[in-house]
Design a protein around this nucleic acid. Structure first.
Length: 695
RNA sequence: GCGAGGAUGGCGGAACCGGUAGACGCGCCGGACUUAGGAUCCGGUGGGGCAACCCGUGCGGGUUCAAGUCCCGCUCCUCGCACCA
């Protein structure tokens, strides 16, 4: 059962940092997606706060608007049902109706509100306010399309220029007054919908003819002058509630004293430790903090007056701890301080932070907030904790979502299957099944089951047991399977075929090296690269080409293409050995190969390395790139006729146009396409392409 | 609705600055070998066609000698936010 309760809890004032958290996003090397999510979460909006006098009363209703330029068009007001003035202002004869509406709104959950299809509803309070600009008497309503949690929980409604207000005004027959004119093509009368774009102010007294963007500033200035309102910025971001009624979490170091009130635990008594509870029943949440059942924990004395007092029994949100752990990592053994500033300043910020998108707002926003706060306390120099952020995709697996019944093109989903899939429809077409990336597979009981890739999770039972897998296949296989399947920012689907591919690849590496073991041991790695020719020279070139690619890809986290390059080089080693014996250049290639393989498959690489070299790959470092090996003297150039490839020629890298032309005209297929035509233009990009434009 | 990203073979995915689309792998087809192994090795594999050749990177235009890549206009998909005044 779920019930709402009022609790006394602790908050951190993250809203005080809203602007800085927003502004500093600019300088971060983070995915745009994550930045966009944080911006939306903070939800800054600029506008004005305007006071509306209530007819016949002292109170004023304050609203927030981003469109002060439309003030003259405010023809009614709406209070959120939870707004304290809603019931207060309700006229006696309408009170019952208003109360019923407010009570109904209170009972509704967020989900129910949305499920109602957003047909706007509301009730007239029987009270009037005065439009401070026009002096007009405007009715006050309450409606649940106005959110109590945002702005002031009350709005001025401008139906002519706000689609939500327009909808509401239409439904309840409220007046609609145009105050912004569309430039160029004047708006139809009456309006067919809200005009929300900028334009020219009309019906707005002294502001007539003003451009609306400029009008915003002018109206605000005018309001400020008259004491009717002022510029204001609001945020969607709320303060951070950190109190949790659970056992696992850092105790909140506060003492409640009947005489002194809330008193912080003095620094020298920190940290307050959790009582050592071993009984699972004790730890389980029960609607209040489990620590409420432990007087040995909460009974204490007041640090101020020394009288009997009670510790706060709530614990902190665990995001509290994850918000600064990376700072502790810079100085993990410090007994005196969370971390020393010099240590933190030496290491921070984190150059490359890696995590899933699920942390896009909470963890990453809280950590940024903590860093800024600690910066303000002088505890750390940086203002941002994570310079670079990489959000990796998740590992998925084909998952059984339960039985289905197929009749022709229709696929019926029995209730449990439908729930598993979290789908509203209980029937699909075969095409829908394909579209959602699902498949129908026979089940052992003879029925068909619907299978679809889903994120690996305990609850779905579609995970891979790490222990047995590593025992059977080895950790290297798992690493290659995951890294090769897709770029790391994509989700990847773990499949048996993928595992097979990784297995085959690593076995091929193993065999290539071990089959040549004796010969490799009998060969030195010494050679003069100037002496290399033919196959040897080609292998040397391929080796350094691979080294360059793997180095770059590793740096850019493109593991899939790095592994592809290693596979290519392995194919080249096999090809080489079909032609040539074990040579010094081959031995060097094997040596480099193991060094390059090491980051991806450390166990097998190290094991093979030990067959030949005494030290560890950890000490071997990274091979040095020979740029000169990358230069090819003969290159393949594509020959196009009118932009279509008709053949290729092999010519020296920097051969002049004449040479390329001569060679190109020897290609039969090129000749055929030039037959009876005149070459009017030759485009030649040395080393890449020769395009002959013929007419 | 708003915001971000995307669409390339049967599949996962390559393609630097506009320059031979489809690297690498999976799957599939054919062959070799056999100490039957989780085999391995060799060859083939975008579509159509006997072929020359034609078509082909979501769709429609455009720029260019040349477009997956640049520009304009759409469609669809994924994710996030969503009555935020």
């Amino acid at each position: 059962m779920v019930e709402k309760r009022e609790l006394e809890q602790w908050y951190l004032r993250i809203t005080a940092y809203a602007d800085r958290l927003l502004r500093d996003l600019e300088g971060l090397d983070w995915p745009e997606k994550v930045k966009a999510m944080q911006r939306a979460w903070i939800g800054r909006s600029e506008g004005a706060e305007i006071h509306f006098p209530v007819e016949g009363r002292e109170e004023r209703i304050t609203v927030f608007t981003t469109r002060p330029d439309t003030l003259f068009g405010a023809t009614f007001m709406v209070l959120a049902p939870e707004h304290p003035l809603t019931l207060e202002l309700a006229a006696p004869e309408r009170r019952e109706e208003v109360l019923a509406y407010v009570e109904a709104a209170k009972r509704k959950t967020e989900i129910e509100r949305q499920a109602e299809g957003r047909e706007k509803t509301g009730v007239f309070l029987g009270a009037y306010a005065l439009n401070p600009a026009t002096g007009e008497r405007i009715p006050i309503w309450t409606a649940d399309y106005v959110l109590y949690g945002y702005g002031t929980g009350a709005i001025m409604a401008v139906p002519a220029h706000d689609s939500r207000d327009y909808e509401f005004a239409k439904k309840y027959g409220l007046p609609i007054k145009k105050v912004i004119e569309r430039p160029g093509e004047p708006l139809p009368e009456p309006l067919e919908g809200a005009y929300e774009e900028p334009g020219i102010m009309v019906n707005s007294g002294p502001f007539d003819g003003t451009e609306s963007e400029e009008g915003k500033r002018k109206v605000i200035a005018w309001l400020e002058e008259k004491g009717l309102g002022k510029a204001r910025i609001t945020y969607r971001l709320r303060d951070w509630l950190i109190s949790r009624q659970r056992y696992w979490g850092t105790p909140i170091p506060m003492v409640h004293c009947p005489a002194c009130g809330v008193v912080p635990v003095p620094e020298e008594e920190l940290p307050v430790l959790l009582p050592d509870l071993k009984d699972v029943e004790d730890i389980r949440p029960k609607g209040k903090s489990p620590l409420e059942a432990h007087p040995e924990f909460y009974e204490t004395t007041c640090p101020r007056c020394g009288g009997p007092a009670k510790r706060d029994t709530d614990t902190m949100d665990t995001f509290f701890d994850s918000s600064w752990y990376y700072l502790r990592y810079t100085d993990p053994k410090n007994e005196r301080l969370p971390f020393a500033r010099e240590k933190a300043d030496f290491w921070m910020p984190v150059d490359q932070y890696i995590g899933g998108v699920e942390h896009a707002v909470l963890h990453l926003l809280y950590s940024r907030f903590f860093t800024k706060f600690l910066h303000d306390l002088g505890m750390v120099g940086v203002e941002e904790p994570f310079k670079g952020l990489f959000t990796q995709g998740m590992v998925m697996a084909w998952t059984d979502f339960g039985p289905v019944e197929v009749e022709g093109d229709r696929v019926r989903l029995p209730e449990p299957t439908r729930i598993q899939l979290e789908m509203a429809e209980s029937e699909l077409s075969l095409e829908d099944v394909k579209k959602m990336g699902a498949e129908l597979r026979p089940h052992k009981d003879g029925t068909l089951h619907l299978w679809k890739p889903a994120v690996m999770s305990k609850s779905k039972g579609n995970g891979v047991m790490v222990g047995p897998f590593v025992k059977e296949e080895g950790a290297d296989i798992a690493r290659i399977t995951i890294l090769f399947a897709a770029p790391p920012e994509n989700e990847m689907v773990w499949t048996e075929e993928g595992v097979q591919g990784a297995w085959r690849f690593l076995n091929r590496v193993w065999r290539r090296v071990m089959e040549d073991k004796e010969a490799l041991l009998a060969t030195t790695g010494k050679f003069r690269k100037e002496d290399l020719e033919g196959e040897d020279k080609a292998l040397y070139g391929k080796l350094h080409e691979t080294l360059k690619k793997v180095t770059q890809d590793l740096e850019a986290l493109r593991f899939n293409t790095a592994i592809a390059a290693l596979m290519e080089l392995l194919n080249a080693l096999y090809e080489y050995r079909r032609q040539r014996p074990v040579t010094p250049v081959y031995r060097t290639a094997v040596r480099y190969y193991l060094q390059m393989l090491f980051p991806f498959a450390p166990h097998i690489a190290e094991e093979l390395w030990h067959q030949f070299w005494p030290d560890s790959l950890f000490e071997a470092g990274w091979p040095e790139l020979d740029e000169s090996a990358l230069e090819k003297d003969v290159v393949e150039v594509a020959v196009q006729v009118n932009g279509r490839v008709r053949g290729t020629i092999r010519i020296p890298k920097d051969a002049p146009l004449e040479v390329a032309l001569t060679e190109a005209k020897k290609v039969p297929n090129v000749q055929a396409h030039l037959e009876g035509k005149e070459v009017v233009k030759e485009i030649y990009v040395p080393g890449k392409i020769l395009n002959l434009v013929a007419r």
